[in-house]
């Protein structure tokens, strides 16, 4: 089946699925959709071009700030404000991605990781120095449930719908890109830059392009979070969150879009589940650990997951499918 058609089907399924969830789960779903968009961008970047970015949270923040600014500035009917916000989010993150990509084309491995890491650490200071509202951040407009739907769905479900739609619109082009000629060029650059150059591929341009293609979905993910929470703060896009995006990409299986979805759900739900588990522990223990029990559980769960399934969720799915149809796979997933 063609990628866009499959995306459409999955989107409709996800939209229908929101009816089965209570408001808080729908809020979590919106957050997971935001992460999904960013992780999909990241997993394609790392999996196909081998460029490790630890700073995708900053690209999300750029999108979030862009969204908040434009959606507030546009004084019109809500769909117009929403579209303007999304456009600004894509622009802001795309531009930052272009800058980063230009640097990335000249840097390798740990140096690029270091650059993107520095970006995350600088975010809070930048938010204070630029007119971005400091640690308190900026408000994003609230999109209430449209009149026609207000009897049917709650606001969290409405935001989940917006989140799913935006995430789908962000990830589908990425999936198309990945399976098309651009994806082939990226793989060629990853395998052997000299060989790729001999075949007439400019590795610098491919790497920069991949960075931009990866930044835009991340920015739209930031916009989705801004829709769900009506706020953009530097604290929300800190180092821990940025690393959890990498965790999601690895846990899901590098390079796989389906894996990105699984990973995004994992990093959204796991901290919450660890919190719930910690709440079950005796109050004495919880107090002695000063609230850090949940962090401990989260870490332990991640270590266990990585040990059990080093290939990530995508490899697991792949294996399950292979068992079911008992046909040897002919493609090599990277």
């Amino acid at each position: 089946m063609k990628t866009p058609l499959r995306a459409l089907l999955l989107t409709v399924l996800a939209l229908g699925g929101t009816f089965g969830l209570d408001p808080f789960r729908n809020y979590q779903l919106a957050a997971a959709a935001a992460c999904f968009a960013a992780v999909a961008g990241l997993t394609v970047l790392v999996g196909l071009t081998g460029q490790l970015s630890l700073g995708h949270a900053v690209l999300m923040a750029a999108g979030g700030y862009g969204f908040a600014w434009a959606a507030t500035a546009v004084d019109g009917p809500w769909p117009l404000a929403l579209l303007a916000g999304l456009l600004a989010a894509a622009l802001a993150s795309g531009l930052l991605g272009l800058l980063l990509g230009a640097a990335a084309a000249r840097l390798r491995g740990p140096y690029l990781a270091g650059l993107t890491l520095a970006l995350v650490i600088a975010l809070s200071a930048a938010a204070g120095a630029l007119p971005l509202g400091g640690d308190q951040g900026v408000r994003a407009p609230f999109f209430p449930v449209p009149e026609a739907l207000s009897a049917l769905i709650a606001v969290e479900q409405w935001h989940a719908w917006l989140a799913i739609t935006v995430a789908a619109a962000a990830v589908t082009p990425l999936a198309v890109l990945r399976s098309g000629p651009a994806g082939l060029r990226m793989r060629a650059v990853l395998d052997d830059e000299t060989a790729a150059r001999l075949s007439g591929i400019d590795p610098g341009r491919v790497k920069t392009g991949a960075f931009v293609a990866s930044a835009i979905p991340a920015g739209l993910g930031g916009a989705v979070l801004a829709i769900a929470t009506q706020q953009v703060t530097p604290g929300g896009y800190g180092l821990a969150f940025s690393l959890s995006l990498v965790v999601a990409a690895v846990a899901g299986g590098l390079g796989s879009i389906g894996g990105a979805a699984a990973g995004a759900v994992l990093v959204t739900v796991l901290p919450w589940a660890a919190d719930e588990l910690a709440a079950l522990a005796p109050a004495e223990l919880g107090r002695r650990l000063d609230g850090n029990l949940a962090v401990l559980l989260f870490g332990a769960a991640l270590v266990a997951l990585t040990l059990a399934w080093p290939g990530g969720a995508a490899r697991l799915l792949h294996r399950a499918r292979a068992l079911r149809f008992a046909t040897p796979s002919t493609t090599t997933e990277r």
Binding site: L13, G16, G17, T18, F19, G20, L21, D22, P23, N26, S150, A151, L152, I153, A154, E156, Q157
Partner: peptide
């Protein structure tokens, strides 16, 4: 999923 609508309906 659509049939399970009741779960999230407000009011």
């Amino acid at each position: 999923a659509l049939a399970a609508a009741a779960c999230s309906t407000p009011g």
